[in-house]
Deep mutational scan, measured.
Amino acid sequence: TLFEALYDYEARTEDDLSFHKGEKFQILNSSEGDWWEARSLTTGETGYIPSIYLAPV
Rank of each mutant, 00 (worst) to 15 (best):
A55M: 12
S30F: 15
I27E: 00
T1G: 11
I49W: 01
D8W: 05
I52K: 15
A11S: 12
A55L: 08
Y53G: 05
S30C: 12
Y9D: 01
E10R: 11
L41W: 06
D16Y: 14
Y7F: 12
Y48M: 14
F3G: 01
Y53W: 07
A38Y: 04
T43S: 10
D34H: 09
A55Q: 12
E45A: 13
D15G: 15
E37G: 05
F3C: 05
T1D: 12
A55P: 01
R39L: 10
K24P: 03
A38C: 10
F25V: 02
Q26E: 14
A11Q: 07
I52A: 15
A38N: 00
K24Q: 12
W35C: 09
G44T: 03
H20W: 09
D34T: 11
Q26V: 14
A38I: 06
T42W: 13
S31G: 10
R12E: 11
E14A: 14
S30A: 12
R12L: 12
P56Q: 09
N29C: 08
K24S: 05
Y9A: 02
E10V: 14
Y9N: 02
E4F: 15
A5V: 01
V57Y: 10
S51Y: 10
E32I: 12
A11L: 02
P56T: 06
I52E: 11
F3K: 01
S40R: 14
T13W: 13
I52H: 13
S18W: 03
T43K: 03
A55G: 09
Q26K: 09
A38M: 07
S30Y: 12
E23Q: 07
S51D: 02
H20G: 08
L41R: 03
R39D: 01
D8H: 07
F3D: 00
L17K: 03
L28F: 07
F25K: 00
T43A: 02
F19W: 02
L6W: 05
K24C: 08
L41P: 02
D8A: 08
I27G: 01
Y7R: 11
L28Q: 04
Y7C: 13
L2H: 06
Y48H: 07
S31W: 09
I52F: 12
D16M: 14
D8K: 05
Q26A: 09
G22P: 00
E4P: 00
E14F: 10
D15K: 15
L6R: 07
S31V: 10
F25Y: 02
H20I: 11
F19H: 01
L41T: 07
W35Y: 13
P56M: 09
N29F: 08
S40L: 06
L54G: 01
K21N: 04
E32H: 14
G47Y: 06
R39N: 03
L17R: 03
L28W: 05
I27F: 03
S31M: 13
T13Q: 11
F19I: 08
K21Y: 05
L28S: 04
L28I: 11
Y53S: 07
A5E: 00
A38Q: 00
I49Q: 00
I49T: 02
W35L: 10
T46S: 09
L17P: 02
L28K: 05
E32F: 12
K21E: 05
N29T: 08
T42H: 09
K21Q: 08
K24Y: 12
S51E: 04
G44W: 07
W36K: 02
K24H: 09
S18I: 02
R39E: 05
G44S: 05
W36I: 05
E45W: 09
E14S: 13
